[in-house]
Simulated assay, not measured.
Amino acid sequence: MAEQNDFKIPIPENKSIDEDFDYSQRGQWLRAAVLGANDGLVSVASLMMGVGAVKHEVKAMVLFGFAGLVAGACSMAIREFVSVSSQLDIEMSHMRRTRANTKERENTEQLPNPVLADLASALAFILGAIVPLLAALFIVNHKLRLAVVTAAITVALVVFGWIGAFLGRTPVVRSCVRVLVGGWMAMAITFGLTKLIGSSSL
């Protein structure tokens, strides 16, 4: 009876299915999605804060924010498609040379997907950009609107930082702090410079 276990494949006690998952495959679209969401959130929020530094009307902030959403999403999608397509061309060329020299079959499952990166970045950018737009849309009071937008962006930055860290299996606190500080700096610099230029005689 003791011989029955000889044909079983030994499994380490501390081995988990999660350890066998190849996160490099997930990174093909995860990088584009995380960057797109953060870019949409920070760039549109900074644009709206800059406009809010010199314009008090809610219509002006929302209009500029919406223009930033559309332009940014298109730019992000085109940039990712061109970038990932170039990367794909390079890797395909390398695979052809390797196959010609070694006569071995190459694994194409891990090749970058330009369309997937394109869609992930554009949709994520829109998702991030919607946050400051919704936060400012129904608030008439100028100071309260700026405060609400700042609070909403702060929460969203932390959430996006946590999502990126969770999916990529990286330190959560470090990721959240990095994203949060970067977003605050972008908004503060845009607000301050726009306020300075708007109050000058230029």
Rank of each mutant, 00 (worst) to 15 (best):
L69I: 02
V44W: 01
F81T: 01
C176S: 04
G128C: 02
I9M: 12
L144M: 13
F166N: 12
N14E: 15
I9W: 09
A151V: 05
V54A: 10
A117L: 03
V173Q: 07
M187A: 07
T154P: 04
R174V: 06
R31N: 01
K143M: 14
F66D: 00
D20I: 06
G183Y: 01
A152Y: 06
L47M: 12
I189W: 07
L41M: 06
P114K: 04
F125E: 00
S201I: 14
G40P: 03
T190Y: 05
L111K: 05
E106W: 14
F125I: 00
R97W: 13
A77M: 15
F64V: 13
V173N: 05
S24F: 11
D39T: 07
E91A: 08
K8W: 10
E109I: 10
F191C: 11
D22Y: 09
L123K: 03
C74K: 04
A37K: 05
A165W: 02
I139F: 03
A156G: 09
V82K: 02
V159P: 05
T190A: 15
I78E: 04
M1F: 14
L47Y: 04
E57N: 13
L193I: 14
A129N: 00
P171S: 02
E80R: 05
A152D: 03
M49Y: 10
M1G: 15
M76Q: 02
N14W: 11
H94R: 15
K8H: 10
V42A: 02
S75N: 13
K55P: 03
V181H: 02
E3V: 13
V148L: 11
V149D: 01
E13W: 10
A151M: 07
L144A: 12
S199G: 08
R145L: 07
R79A: 15
A186S: 09
A188V: 13
K55E: 07
Q87M: 08
K8V: 09
N38P: 11
K103I: 07
G168F: 01
A2R: 08
Y23S: 10
E13T: 13
Q28E: 13
V179D: 02
A124F: 09
G182K: 00
L157V: 02
V51Y: 08
D89I: 06
F166D: 10
I9P: 08
T102K: 09
S93F: 12
I163V: 13
A73S: 05
T154I: 04
A186G: 07
V172W: 05
G164A: 07
L137H: 10
T170R: 09
A71S: 11
A165H: 04
A33K: 00
Q4H: 15
G50P: 05
G164S: 03
K59N: 15
E3Q: 13
D18V: 13
M95P: 03
K15I: 10
L88A: 05
L167H: 03
H56C: 14
A117Q: 01
F64Y: 11
G164M: 02
N38L: 14
A37F: 12
F191K: 07
V44K: 00
I153Q: 04
L127R: 01
A165Q: 01
M76V: 04
A60H: 08
